[in-house]
């Protein structure tokens, strides 16, 4: 069950989520609070500290959503741990205190669910697709994915060991292109930096990264990106010290408002 923009479905989604959670005893309170939070009515009664572990790409959106939830619940403090999903999954399985985990891919969420640490079944709350990032003005004259097969162009893609590189391999394979990169970057930020400095003609990064870079880069969408859609799952954790607030945060992320914030940041709502 995933959320759409329709409010009716959103409410149904909330009920489904809270019903399958380990925090179901407090689900009523949580849903009503989150309803208040997502309508920005204020005066929420959540207290204590909420710790959210989230993929680094969610930094801006989640920080804003967290500020909003804290504004609505003055007694609530939210602390974030933004890092690579694999590092976060390792920390959680090693016993790091976290209430919510939002992963940038299913693989790292599986690490957590295999350890039995998910309080409710993870749901996909957003998606990210690859996009071509070029320096402003597109000096290399890049038009589409096929340009990544041109050895004369200076090109950056992520190393196959990291998620954006694995996604790149998938789209190249699907498109039948033999990529001719000059560098295999250690993460998507490093690839983007080289575009921002104008040192490469193009890099393959995520749509959200292009959005986050603002005027520093231009984005080119390409149809083959649909072959490697990155799904972001989220769940509350069994070790949660603040399950009510955890559920409220999760609900806010999946609300129309949360989805709008994600869309504005270059993500897109789950397609099914």
């Amino acid at each position: 069950m995933r959320l759409r923009a329709l409010p009716v479905l959103a409410v149904a989604g909330l009920l489904t989520l809270t019903a399958c959670g380990g925090s179901s005893s407090s689900s009523d309170a949580a849903s009503s609070t989150s309803a208040a939070a997502s309508s920005s009515a204020g005066g929420g009664d959540l207290t204590g500290t909420l710790t959210v572990f989230a993929a680094a790409s969610l930094t801006d959106v989640f920080t804003d959503l967290g500020d909003q939830l804290m504004a609505d619940n003055p007694e609530l403090t939210i602390t974030f741990n933004f890092a690579g999903s694999s590092a976060l999954a390792t920390q959680i399985t090693q016993g790091a205190p976290a209430d919510v985990f939002a992963s940038a891919n299913q693989k790292q969420m599986t690490v957590v669910t295999d350890a039995g640490l998910d309080a409710d079944d993870p749901t996909v709350f957003t998606e990210n697709v690859l996009e071509i990032a070029v320096p402003p003005g597109n000096p290399g004259g890049i038009t589409g994915l096929a340009d990544f097969g041109d050895a004369d162009k200076t090109l950056a893609i992520c190393a196959p060991d990291v998620p954006c590189g694995a996604a790149a391999e998938t789209v190249f394979a699907a498109a039948g292109i033999t990529a001719q990169p000059d560098t295999l970057e250690e993460d998507v930020r490093a690839a983007l930096t080289k575009v921002e400095l104008g040192e490469v003609d193009a890099a393959l990064v995520y749509a959200s990264d292009v959005q986050a870079a603002g005027d520093g880069v231009e984005g080119i969408e390409f149809p083959e990106a649909e072959d490697a859609v990155n799904e972001y799952p989220i769940c509350t954790l069994t070790g949660a010290s603040n399950p009510e607030a955890a559920q409220a945060f999760l609900d806010l992320v999946e609300s129309d408002e949360g989805q709008q914030a994600l869309t504005d940041a270059g993500f897109r709502s789950p397609s099914n």
């Binding site: 694999s86 190393a159 060991d161 295999l184 250690e186």
Partner: peptide, 26 residues
């Protein structure tokens, strides 16, 4: 090195870069 020279096997991937990337997957 990984910033200025990038990372490509045979031309710019030195051992520390290979170690770091291997750490991601293996």
């Amino acid at each position: 090195t990984i910033t200025f020279a990038g990372n490509f096997p045979g031309t710019t991937q030195t051992m520390p870069l290979a170690v770091y990337l291997a750490l991601q997957s293996n």
